[in-house]
Design a protein around this nucleic acid. Structure first.
Length: 215
DNA sequence: GAATAGATTGTCT
DNA sequence: GACAATCTATTCT
């Protein structure tokens, strides 16, 4: 099939920007590496309602069967975790607390179930559409500073489970570099010692990080 | 600003 | 039947 056309949109300063998917090789690395590399990249959703783009400012690594906090801990392979056992560069989407969607990047190699949870983005393009989806003002920084919020803002749903991030309408595109800090992951206190690992990565200069850095 | 409770459903025991 | 990789409204200070 023909390679997909890069999608053009208006960036922050009104400049014409072209977005195109990062190659699968970006994802074919350990989750810890991908998580760090993802900070500053752009998350693009070219949906029927329009284009929305955000710069990733926070994410977490969930590293395979050894990580008690990962859904794939112990090699657990179910209908839900199945996509993590496949090729890298696909979307692992799941529901928490009965109502919030979480978006993850499948990493590493087939049969190595690692993933990166995208926790926060800052709006780059299509913030009006994001605000409409969220039912709030576009100027608010709470627009997508959380894993559930950014999925709502970008229109990511369970229907995106297993989507190819190298071929479809939902993908990462090359962004810019920034400072990167680390911290323990959020909301996984049940994971014991694993909960303390500094596997959360964020841009300390961004106002859009979900939980204020404690230092 | 900080703390608390309630929402709500797929997934696994 | 319990729990979950969260968010929001509400009730304090």
């Amino acid at each position: 099939m023909a390679p997909r056309k890069p999608r053009a949109g208006r960036g922050p300063a009104g400049l014409l920007t072209v977005y195109s998917p990062l190659p699968r090789s970006f994802y074919a690395r350990p989750a810890l590496v991908v998580a760090r590399a993802s900070i500053g990249q752009l998350l693009v959703h070219d949906s029927p309602e329009g284009l929305s783009v955000g710069r990733i400012v926070e994410c977490e690594a969930y590293a395979g069967p050894d990580d008690r906090a990962a859904h794939s801990f112990g090699g657990r392979r179910t209908a839900r975790t199945e996509v993590m056992f496949g090729s890298p560069g696909f979307a692992y989407v799941f529901l928490v607390y009965g109502l919030h969607v979480q978006f993850n990047l499948v990493c590493a190699a087939p049969d190595v179930p690692e993933a990166v949870l995208v926790r926060a983005i800052e709006p780059v393009s299509g913030s009006a559409l994001m605000a409409a989806r969220r039912g709030m003002s576009a100027s608010k920084k709470q627009l997508c500073n959380g894993p559930g919020k950014l999925c709502r803002a970008l229109g990511i749903t369970m229907n995106h489970y297993g989507e190819d991030l190298c071929q479809g309408k939902l993908y990462l595109s090359r962004g810019s570099r920034s400072r990167i800090n680390t911290a323990p992951r959020i909301g996984i206190d049940y994971a014991g010692e694993w909960a303390k690992r500094p596997w959360r990565f964020f841009d300390p200069d961004s106002q859009y990080v979900s939980v204020a850095p404690k230092g």
